[in-house]
Write a protein that binds this DNA or RNA. Structure first.
Lengths: 224, 224
DNA sequence: CTAATAGTGTCTCTTAGACACTATAAA
DNA sequence: TTTATAGTGTCTAAGAGACACTATTAG
């Protein structure tokens, strides 16, 4: 016997670091339910063009946030009878991590919001967001994930501040540098240094061209 | 505009340890496509009775394998245009880890198969199985997951052999015991020991009553 | 006694964590 | 000079890994 097919959507937690805090990208809904509300970017799977849910996520990110994220991972699937007023629904959720965008986002249908202020969002999007932030914080402890928050060129000091801002904790400089070197995902840009400050210039680094999106260590960063 | 709703199923990788090797529980399909083939236990979401996908997974496990697993976790969602001949489909997959069942499974619609021999399964079930086994091996390195493979009472030696069989590597006894003690998920059964072998009896242990399903360490077990 | 497995003591070597030190810029 | 940040050297304490030792049963 057959059952009614659930509603299937793909929702994306798009994260970046602005003003020293994690921000999530939100879009304004143009349909009921929750018409006019700010939610995580999401949409239906287009069964005629999306090869799979990953492609649907990349398409939605492109259409709603106008960007292509090199780091886009499935988070988990949220489902239930009551999470959407239209019926039994299922959301395959993803999280993306991108460098701070330059300038204000184009259009009125997209904005960045600090994740710590987002206690309530329509549907179960607050829970999805919370899960994504937890995942990112946890991966930050033992992986190179925060490198995706950095611009093309950056210093080790800036990378450490990024880790610290994601974790909400300070790290020892020596230990941090040892760890990053082990992960082997960034490289010096020969001869490139910062300039301008009244202090010693810093070596600029970039992601290694062929490094995997994520490298993991076998132990956690020491936090507090 | 609306799109055709994808086919939604829940599939479960049910794992146990028999004869020193990981085995997966398979059920025989009684419908097309792949009629008569052995596949991962799975089924439709029953939108009228399942509160969410977790409940659907528990129901399917109960109906098809006749058991209730204390450890049942979402693995990930597999989807695509071509993974099921009936159309664009999506499978929310789960993995469960249970002690070796006593006796042969009841019925002809269920059997255990060694995971290493399962190179090909209908749909993308071989890939789902591979992903689950990877996940279990990886969690074995830093968590108490294999405790769910143990019967109600067991020795530390048996637990170590379980870890070793899942990992396919030998572990140092001292280090292993230190690690298990840190995880703090099992306890001695006062006065209970093995008997019968021509050697010193071993203390019997059990899961702690209120321990969480999974405890994690901050570093990996040392393997080769 | 031997054989076999259970369980503990402990030494060494690695590494994390702390922190002091030097380096180099601008004012 | 001072101030600020970049970057390195290195000591120490904790812990992992190795492995030898004792304990307790049956035969």
């Amino acid at each position: 016997m057959d059952f009614e097919r659930p509603i299937v959507t793909v929702d994306i937690v798009l994260l970046t670091l602005r003003d020293s805090h994690l921000h999530a990208g939100l879009t304004r809904r143009d349909k009921a339910p929750a018409l006019g509300a700010w939610t995580l970017p999401g949409g239906w799977v287009h069964t005629d063009q999306d090869q799979d849910a990953d492609e649907a996520a990349a398409r939605i990110l492109r259409d709603k946030a106008g960007l292509v994220s090199p780091y886009l991972e499935q988070l988990r699937t949220f489902s239930g009878m009551h999470r959407d007023s239209r019926g039994w629904s299922l959301s395959v959720s993803y999280y993306a991590v991108v460098p701070e965008p330059v300038g204000e986002p184009a259009g009125e249908r997209f904005r960045w919001a600090p994740v710590d202020g987002l206690r309530s969002l329509p549907f179960d999007h607050a829970q999805i967001l919370r899960t994504a932030v937890e995942r990112v914080r946890s991966k930050t402890l033992y992986s190179s994930l925060p490198v995706h928050l950095m611009p093309a060129e950056f210093t080790l000091g800036a990378l450490q501040r990024t880790y610290e801002q994601v974790l909400g904790a300070t790290l020892d400089k020596r230990g941090f540098r040892r760890r990053i070197e082990e992960l082997d995902v960034i490289e010096e840009i020969p001869g490139a240094f910062t300039s301008g400050g009244s202090h010693r210039p810093a070596q600029l680094y970039r992601k290694k061209a062929h490094a995997p999106a994520l490298k993991t260590a076998t132990s956690n960063l020491p936090v507090g």
